[in-house]
Design a protein around this nucleic acid. Structure first.
Length: 487
RNA sequence: GGUCCUAUCGACUAACGGUUAGGUCACCAGCCUUUCACGCUGGCAGUGGGGGUUCGAAUCCCCCUAGGAUCACCA
């Protein structure tokens, strides 16, 4: 059988990380089996139309490295790939069900349905549609129903779930699932505006697009019996199902927009690296070996195994994501980092630096940060002379005699022709041996005078980056301030 | 409340009847070191409970408990 899978999001205006994981697994599965991965937009809810939502979706998926074999932008032979343009299909198959007596008209208003649910709640038990007590073509009779429709009354079409028996289906991840028919609701198939609900549209489209495997989130598991029944009603083959474990927040509830970031673009904006993010998402619910964390997209494809995906939900841990990002940041080619860092520096009004200089800054700081965006702030002393000096650091490292100890070294440094990491290092080392002081005794005061803070890259690298003239000037300024008692 | 799903360190996971239950994040300690990081080494920490099946159970079955999802003219 040809593998054909689809990612079928509704255009809500953003791509949820759970959606990205679903799209990714569909993609990995298709690639692994040499099949096709399809993108279908499910926009049957007219009330939720969002401008540019589809473009946003596609753009974010593309960023993640997920390319579809068939989509709105790349039509295959099973289009259209957006449900609002497949309207007639759903009408046709809704009608077919009506003719087969596997569906019926219902005229209940939302108030009447509300009242029914309230009543059912009082009685205890389920809240499913009470077919025999409501206003529909079963209680009213076909003729009366047609009269109402002719008179212009609003109606929906509901599926007629058998009263006896049970629905069974195989889930690749969970095994066999069974649900008694009496617990399956008479789902609305066609709404009063004539548009289909997800359930009808999804089944019809999956059938005609020849989808072989339905890979989606676990939230769809409870409605899958309805879908299976629909396949049976139509006499169509049922695809294989795989319901992915939910992505959870710290409280172990479904990750939702209410708490923190869930949109892929939020993570992008924060500066997460594409490969790191995708790697992390891929490992939520599955790990190919258990003794490795870093995998390329190609490795994920080669190793992907749907049947080994976890059943239990996975908590989305930002700390591990941060670690993952750092791992990728360390390996990021400097040429790719430079434009990003340059833009970040511009946000801090640092401009006019040579690419080569920015590259050196990145090299020195990539192992000290999670995001490139953190670099400008922690390297501000490279661009402007420090005016504040960490008091704790000063108290700890600047003693009575420090000025006198440091002056001879500064004098020697100022004589240096070549001011590089090696030359300053060699000179300082020789000086320390000669003067019989430990390197640390001088390194800290130098750092204090030059940067004002206690952390940063190696001192000799830092000096080389600041340059001889600026270094000497900062030493002198600091010493003068010390002498005048300003600091 | 009905239905369905789920249950290995705090978190992500490996072990698909036989391992001293492994790896990673986080945390702690040490090493490295001119600081901060990185890195390295070590440590803490887990099969929810009870019954079965079996020579042997994290793994298979049942019950309990706990969590979650779902029950819209949303997807």
């Amino acid at each position: 059988m040809d593998v054909r899978v689809r990612f079928a999001p509704s255009p809500t205006g953003y791509l949820h990380v759970g959606g990205l994981r679903t799209a990714l697994y569909n993609y990995l599965f298709a690639k692994k089996h040499g099949g096709k991965c399809i993108l279908r937009i499910e926009d049957t809810d007219r009330t939720r139309f969002v401008e540019n939502a589809t473009e946003n979706l596609i753009e974010n998926l593309r960023w993640a490295g997920i390319e579809f074999d068939e989509s709105l932008e790349k039509e295959g032979e099973f289009g259209p790939y957006i449900q609002s343009e497949r309207f007639d299909l759903y009408t046709k198959y809704g009608k077919e069900l009506l003719e087969k007596d596997l569906a019926y008209y219902a005229f209940d208003t939302s108030e009447e349905l509300e009242a029914m649910r309230e009543r059912l709640k009082q009685e205890g038990g389920s809240f499913k549609y009470d077919r025999n007590k409501m206003r529909n073509s079963i209680t009213l009779g076909k003729e009366e129903a047609e009269k109402l429709i002719a008179a212009g009354e609003d109606y929906v079409i509901r599926m007629k779930v058998p009263e006896e028996g049970e629905v069974r289906f195989k889930d690749i991840i969970r095994g066999e699932v069974k649900v008694p028919c009496k617990d399956v609701d008479d789902q609305i198939l066609l709404k009063s505006d004539g548009f289909p609900t997800y359930h009808l549209a999804n089944v019809v489209d999956d059938h005609f697009m020849q989808i072989s495997h339905v890979i989606r989130g676990e939230e769809w598991l409870p409605s899958t019996p309805k879908h299976v029944l629909l396949y049976q009603f139509f006499g169509w083959d049922t695809p294989d199902f795989a319901h992915l474990p939910l992505l959870l927040n710290e409280k172990k509830a479904k990750l939702s927009k209410r708490h923190g970031d869930v949109a892929v673009e939020d993570f992008r904006a924060k500066g997460y690296l594409r490969d790191a993010f995708v790697n992390f998402i891929a490992l939520l619910g599955w790990n190919p070996t258990g003794d490795r964390e870093i995998y390329s997209m190609q490795e994920l494809i080669d190793l992907f195994d749907l049947s080994k995906v976890n059943k239990a939900g996975a908590v989305f841990d930002l700390k591990k994501l941060a670690w993952m990002n750092q791992q990728y940041l360390k390996e990021l080619p400097t040429s790719e980092a430079v434009p990003v860092l340059k833009a970040e520096l511009e946000k801090h009004e640092v401009t006019g630096l040579e690419d080569n200089y920015i590259a050196q800054v990145f090299e020195l700081f990539k192992e000290r940060v999670t995001f490139i965006s953190e670099i400008p702030e922690m390297t501000s002393y490279l661009y402007t002379e420090p005016t504040e000096f960490d008091e704790k650091y000063m108290a700890k490292r600047w003693k009575e005699d420090t000025a006198d100890m440091v002056k001879p070294l500064i004098e020697k440094l100022s004589q240096l022709e070549e001011f590089t990491h090696d030359s300053t290092h060699d000179l300082t080392k020789a000086h320390c041996e000669e003067a019989d002081v430990k390197m640390g005794q001088l390194m800290h005061p130098l750092r204090l005078m030059l940067t004002g803070i206690s952390s940063g890259a190696g001192m000799f690298d830092t000096m080389a980056l600041i340059g001889k003239d600026r270094c000497i000037k900062r030493f002198e300024t600091f010493l003068a301030k010390k002498e005048s008692g300003e600091i």
